[in-house]
Design a protein around this nucleic acid. Structure first.
Lengths: 84, 84
DNA sequence: AAAGTATTTAGATATTTGTCTAAATATATA
DNA sequence: TATATATTTAGACAAATATCTAAATACTTT
């Protein structure tokens, strides 16, 4: 839970999730969507991956990232405990 | 949204919310629930308050904190965009 | 095999964060 | 009014974080 909230605590990473929500993307495609260096984006992807919020698969020289919505369920459940 | 996720990105603060979910509490009562100095808890309360996740009301020499569940709705909506 | 493309790893740095102790403020009570 | 209690503010510090450039790794194509 700590890893999830840590991962979500960054606007860039939340935007990455918003992008992946629409379609799978390569690391480069994701990086092109931001004004941030590729290594920095790679680091953000690593944090999202460690939180299990995304998965990756190698496809030739590309690495394709996908969102893992099942993890969001954990956050959802926690949030719902506040809705009496 | 940034402030909310920032506020939620700390185990102590999430526990404070879990406590306030049950009942309103004074700053001192909240601090007593943790192995952390009162000033540090006060700082956590400030962050939660800036995020509008809690409200406070002075009652004599005590300051009573309450949870504000309406803000959780924003997070909930964001999370729900991932559940297709 | 050499060169090009895609991505990550390594190392550095400035900023943010969580914590502490000491001091300040505000209220209550003797 | 003096003292005790509740809470916050101020200032310091170590650890974590987001970012960068340079270099390494992996795959593709010529």
């Amino acid at each position: 839970m700590n890893d999830i909230f840590k991962a979500l605590n960054d606007a860039t990473r939340r935007e990455i999730l918003d992008l992946l929500k629409e379609k799978d993307m390569s690391a480069g495609e994701i990086a092109d969507a931001f004004n941030i260096s590729k290594p920095s984006i790679s680091h953000h992807l690593d944090i999202l991956k460690r939180a299990d919020l995304i998965t990756s698969e190698k496809n030739g020289q590309f690495i394709i990232y996908s969102i893992n919505t099942t993890i969001m369920e954990d956050v959802l459940q926690w949030i719902l405990t506040f809705k009496k």
